[in-house]
Simulated assay, not measured.
Amino acid sequence: MKFNSKCWFTGTSYCVYILATSEFKIELLAVVPYLSITEALDAAKDIFAENAKRFYKINVAVKSFDSKNVISPNFVKIETNTPQRDVVLVRLVWVDASGQHRCRVIPEKRFKDSVKKNGVGLTVACMAMSSATDGPAVGTNLSAVGEIRLIPDLSTKCRIPWATQEEMVLADMYLKPGEAWEYCPKEALRRVSKVLKDEFNLVMNAGFEIEFFLLKSVLREGKEEWVPFDTTPYCSTSSFDAASPLLHEVVAALESLNITVEQLHAESGKGQFELALGYTECTVAANNLIFTREVIRAVARKYGLLATFVPK
């Protein structure tokens, strides 16, 4: 790195120096829009200090900027050849009537010995819970009385990319062996697909455009608030640069699940992105939608962000 200027400010007990470079300005301007004021100041101090170390050949460590929860604008390589460890837990996943993803988690041995065939019991009230309360919504006629069986759909069983000692599998809902529950979403889609095929010789394919917001936590007057990750416009290259490491991991995780991503870009909302999946047979597409949302939320948490799919 070349140093273009050097300024000294001296005093009786200390000496302060500033080393300014064109490269420093470029690097700092590239990351400042995505940092808090405190983080930006710490980053500037580190860059100045590192430049001084190199210029004066000072052998000291510089550690003031904590970047563990900040997404770097540089690409983060994802290791794809990491050996997989033995599965310890299996998540039995379902989606309720309000769109909430829920799961029961079973030790892998019990899953193989029993749950794989017999499933687990679940109160019927779980299908009627709203997104606001853990209780059945008024008017659903579903209560804590009565149970169904969550039976794993083994065709959907897969290793979880962000938790390599776990697997997840989507669940069908049965009243008893061979009798699907009328409120089972997967069964409802299968029934409609069968009607289209049997009566009209049609096969329904589907592809989803998944829009989501990335929010970051900030403190305002001592209170935590979740604010948009950035404020850039539609299809902004800067926005994609800022979230690039996260999005790379999302795409890699989806590829490991054999889910095709056709394209992705920054949307018009603040901190909003869109990811378009390839189209496929509708029951498979619905499964892919569930897994994709799981991936996006999990990877966002890894970067200290909150991913939400609520409308803007």
Rank of each mutant, 00 (worst) to 15 (best):
T38V: 12
L92H: 04
V90R: 09
R85L: 11
I26Y: 08
N74F: 09
K68D: 11
P152A: 00
D134F: 05
V88Y: 01
V145M: 08
M127F: 14
A97N: 13
K53G: 01
S143Q: 06
D96F: 04
E79A: 07
R102T: 03
L35S: 04
S114M: 03
P83A: 04
E108H: 14
D134E: 14
V87M: 06
F24M: 15
V32E: 12
K117N: 14
A52N: 08
M127R: 08
E147R: 04
W94M: 02
P73M: 01
N141K: 15
A52S: 10
K53D: 02
N69G: 02
T21A: 14
E27V: 05
K117G: 05
M129C: 12
T156W: 03
T38E: 14
V95M: 13
R110N: 10
E79D: 15
I148R: 05
A40L: 07
S114F: 12
A137V: 13
N69Y: 11
A40S: 15
V138L: 12
L29H: 11
G119N: 05
M129A: 01
V95P: 06
I151G: 04
G135T: 11
A97P: 01
G139K: 08
L154W: 03
S143P: 07
D46F: 00
K116R: 15
A43P: 02
A49F: 04
T80R: 12
E50F: 00
E23G: 05
G99V: 06
V62G: 01
A49E: 14
G99P: 07
D66Q: 09
A40V: 06
N69E: 09
P83Y: 02
E79N: 14
D96V: 04
K117C: 04
S36Q: 09
I106W: 03
E147H: 07
F111L: 08
D113A: 09
A20C: 12
I71H: 00
D153C: 06
T156Y: 03
S36C: 07
P107I: 00
P33E: 01
V145P: 00
N118D: 15
S131K: 13
Q84A: 11
C103Q: 11
A61Q: 11
K25M: 10
K68S: 13
H101M: 12
G146A: 04
V138H: 10
G139S: 09
G135Q: 13
L35I: 03
E79S: 10
T140L: 03
R110E: 13
S131I: 09
F24A: 15
L150H: 03
T156C: 03
C103A: 15
I58R: 08
L28E: 04
A49I: 03
F48E: 14
I18Q: 11
A132Y: 08
K63I: 04
V120S: 06
T21R: 12
V90M: 05
S114D: 15
V90C: 09
L150M: 11
T82Q: 10
L92I: 14
L29W: 05
A49Q: 14
V90D: 03
I151F: 04
T21I: 01
L89R: 10
L19G: 07
V120N: 01
F111Y: 15
F55R: 09
L142E: 06
T21H: 08
R91P: 02
C126K: 06
P152Q: 02
K63T: 10
E50I: 06
T82N: 09
I151K: 07
T38C: 02
F111T: 03
F75N: 10
V88E: 13
V70R: 06
R54N: 13
